[in-house]
Amino acid sequence: MEHDFPFAVYPSLDGRVVFITGGGSGIGESLVRHFCAQGANVTFVDLAEEPSRALVESIKADGHRAPDFIPCDLRDIDKLQAAIRATQEKHGAIRVLLNNAGNDDRHRTEDVTVAYWDDRMAVNQRHQFFAAQAVRPMMRDAGGGSIINFGSITWMVGDGDCPAYVTAKAAITGLTRALAREFGPERIRVNCMIPGWVMTERQMRLWLTPEGERQIADRQCLQDRVQPSDIARMALFLAADDSRMCTSQNFIVDGGWV
């Protein structure tokens, strides 16, 4: 259940240039909505054009600053980095990067081919590095920035039904720590968001069975369901100047999954 009580406003995000991957649906859609509501200047990329364009129109109708949408398959690194350059040329230096995009399709070890493995790395991990590579010079020259990589609790709890996805998401923690150390002298913060089982439309449609409901009840300390907005609000904090001394960390939003 989404809540309607008031949440924080971050003045430092007003007008800030923000780039979000996988912004057309799920957690990404909530990120786009929340950053636009803060007055940020948002550009997002996604493979799915129809829902992405509908999201832009919906945000316009809400009276917020409309985001820019650039169609992009993140497996094409040249196009991803071109979208980042186009954002800089239009709006100025990107100060916040949210490496959100990913896909947690289920698979068994015996069914994984080399081509499938490489594709899962490309979809879930590789683009995060190359997006960070592209925004680094503009963040440095602008005096700093915030990069938020998106991981998953699947590697922490050892989920057994998607080993390639789990491997990719575990690697993001290592990537985050390496980039935080390298980029820190340039006042670029790099953190990792680790969502739990988030109640996106896709998750509820594909996997929220009665057994799944029982698993949540048994394993979450908090019995409310984790919503995309819960993830977005933590991301707002990590993007804003309020978190200026937070870097090289994992920020887990999972309701206390044990």
Rank of each mutant, 00 (worst) to 15 (best):
Q227R: 11
V258C: 15
R136P: 14
K60E: 00
D254G: 12
C246M: 15
G145R: 05
A132G: 07
V166P: 10
G184E: 05
M204L: 07
A168Q: 05
I147R: 11
V135Q: 00
E213W: 01
A83D: 13
G174S: 13
R126Q: 03
N41A: 15
T113I: 09
F150G: 12
R16T: 08
S58T: 14
P210Q: 04
Q133S: 06
R233Q: 07
D68V: 12
N100Y: 07
G23K: 13
V198G: 14
L206K: 05
T43A: 08
F5D: 06
E110V: 04
P51Y: 04
E50V: 03
I148C: 15
A168D: 14
W155F: 14
E213H: 09
R177S: 06
F129G: 09
Q128L: 12
V96R: 02
S30I: 00
G28W: 08
V56W: 06
M138S: 15
F5P: 00
V166G: 10
D76V: 08
E89K: 15
V96W: 03
L74F: 09
D241F: 13
R106Y: 00
A235Q: 12
W197I: 08
I231N: 08
G24W: 07
R233D: 00
A232L: 11
C192H: 07
D105P: 00
A131V: 00
P51A: 04
A142H: 12
G174M: 12
I59F: 14
D254I: 02
V123D: 08
T21F: 02
S248F: 10
L236P: 14
D161A: 13
H3G: 02
A54I: 03
A66K: 02
G212D: 01
S25D: 03
F44H: 05
N103S: 07
A8Q: 15
A48V: 08
S248Y: 06
R181N: 02
P195R: 06
N124M: 02
D62W: 02
T173P: 14
K79S: 15
R189A: 04
E186P: 11
R108T: 12
F35S: 08
C192A: 06
I27G: 05
R126G: 08
S248Q: 07
D218S: 06
M1H: 01
C246A: 13
Y10M: 13
P195N: 01
L97N: 13
D119Y: 04
Q133H: 02
G143E: 06
E186D: 06
G212W: 09
F237H: 13
A132P: 01
L98C: 02
E110G: 01
E2M: 07
D224F: 10
L13P: 12
D254M: 07
F183H: 05
S25I: 00
G92D: 02
V9F: 05
P210S: 04
I194L: 11
V17N: 14
F237N: 15
D46S: 01
D46N: 01
P228R: 03
R187T: 03
L238A: 11
A240L: 12
S12V: 14
I153C: 06
D73S: 06
M234D: 06
M193A: 00
H64G: 09
F129D: 13
